[in-house]
Simulated scan of single mutants.
Amino acid sequence: MRFTEHLHLEGIRPSIGSVGDAYDNALMETINGLYKAEFIRTKVLHDGPWRTASDVEYATASWVEWSNNRRLHSSLGMISPTEFEAGHYVDTKPMAD
Rank of each mutant, 00 (worst) to 15 (best):
P14D: 13
P14L: 02
P14G: 08
P14I: 01
P14H: 15
S15P: 00
S15N: 14
I16Q: 10
I16M: 10
G17C: 04
G17V: 01
S18A: 08
G20Y: 13
D21T: 05
D21Y: 07
A22I: 12
A22Q: 12
A22Y: 13
A22M: 06
A22H: 14
Y23Q: 05
Y23M: 05
Y23F: 00
Y23A: 03
Y23S: 06
D24H: 07
D24V: 14
N25C: 10
A26R: 06
A26F: 07
A26H: 07
L27C: 02
L27T: 03
L27H: 02
M28V: 15
M28H: 08
M28Y: 09
M28K: 03
E29S: 12
I31T: 05
I31R: 11
I31D: 07
N32E: 03
N32D: 03
N32L: 15
G33I: 02
G33V: 03
L34W: 08
L34C: 12
Y35D: 04
Y35N: 04
Y35G: 03
Y35H: 11
K36V: 12
K36F: 04
K36C: 09
A37F: 01
A37M: 05
A37V: 04
A37Q: 12
E38T: 06
I40Q: 01
I40K: 02
I40H: 01
R41L: 09
R41Q: 05
R41F: 06
R41Y: 10
T42H: 04
T42R: 04
T42E: 01
K43G: 14
V44S: 14
V44C: 10
V44W: 11
L45N: 13
H46P: 06
D47I: 04
D47P: 08
D47T: 05
D47L: 12
G48P: 06
G48H: 08
G48R: 09
G48N: 04
P49S: 07
W50C: 03
W50T: 00
W50I: 07
W50A: 02
R51A: 01
R51E: 06
R51M: 04
R51K: 10
R51S: 05
T52M: 00
T52W: 00
T52I: 09
T52L: 00
T52K: 07
S54V: 10
S54F: 08
S54A: 14
D55P: 02
V56A: 07
V56P: 01
V56K: 04
E57N: 12
E57Q: 13
Y58R: 14
A59P: 02
T60E: 07
T60H: 05
T60A: 09
S62K: 15
S62H: 15
